[in-house]
């Protein structure tokens, strides 16, 4: 369990490997399957997710601790976080469209989908549940982003190999990808206990 007494590095490792958002917590799976058909796409998506998680962490932490808690409006956190994340993603989309058109093309529909990616909303909520301070929150958000990157790139690499594998017709495409994901999830369970976490 992550808490405020741990140093940022441990929080980072914990979020990245031990509590991997995709393979252990099973959050944000839509983009995990949607964008993992090639490594190129998954790299783009990962960069976008890292950027948005860190931004969302900072902004949601500030809004929660400096606005919602003093005003005693903690129950509004879901609405405000969604609003915040949606805005951030919009800004990011415009930025990418302007400066990185090939990436924009590659990500297509999935970029707006980060808006509703539960991994990102989960980071904002977990920061509150773990009662982390701002620095630790950023470490946690970054760890989740890197964990996402690690999982989706490994997964995309394996799926690229699956393209040439002789797979029974009933399992072609997503079914075999689900099997693969569950095996990867089992493998990630092996990180439990690393650094005594």
């Amino acid at each position: 369990m992550i808490d405020n007494t741990m140093n940022p590095f441990l929080i980072f490792i914990s979020a990245c490997l031990i509590n991997n958002i995709l393979l252990i917590k099973f959050l944000g799976l839509c983009s995990f399957f949607g964008l993992s058909s090639s490594i190129k796409n998954s790299v783009g998506m990962s960069l976008a997710v890292i950027f948005v998680t860190i931004m969302a962490t900072v902004v949601s932490w500030i809004i929660f601790h400096l606005v919602l808690v003093p005003l005693n409006l903690v129950f509004l956190r879901t609405a405000t976080f969604i609003l915040t994340i949606a805005t951030l993603v919009q800004i990011e989309e415009m930025f990418i469209k302007k400066y990185l058109p090939p990436l924009y093309k590659a990500m297509g529909i999935y970029l707006p989908l980060i808006t509703t990616n539960c991994a990102i909303l989960a980071v904002a909520f977990l920061n509150i549940d773990y009662n982390l301070n701002l620095l630790n929150s950023i470490a946690h958000g970054f760890g989740v982003g890197v964990g996402y990157t690690l999982a989706i790139i490994l997964f995309a690499g394996l799926r690229e190999r699956l393209m040439t594998a002789p797979i029974p017709k009933a399992l072609q495409g997503y079914p075999v990808a689900f099997f693969l994901a569950s095996l990867m999830s089992l493998a990630f369970l092996g990180f439990k206990g690393l650094f005594g976490l």
Binding site: I63, V67, L73, L83, T87, I91, K97
Partner: peptide, 27 residues
């Protein structure tokens, strides 16, 4: 009242930011 003002205010602030950013990053 505070809830409405807060959410409405946040929405308005974000809308303004988005409008400005969309002008800057206009393609």
């Amino acid at each position: 009242t505070i809830s409405i003002i807060l959410l409405g205010g946040l929405g308005l602030a974000f809308a303004v930011i988005l409008a400005i950013v969309s002008k800057i990053f206009f393609v």
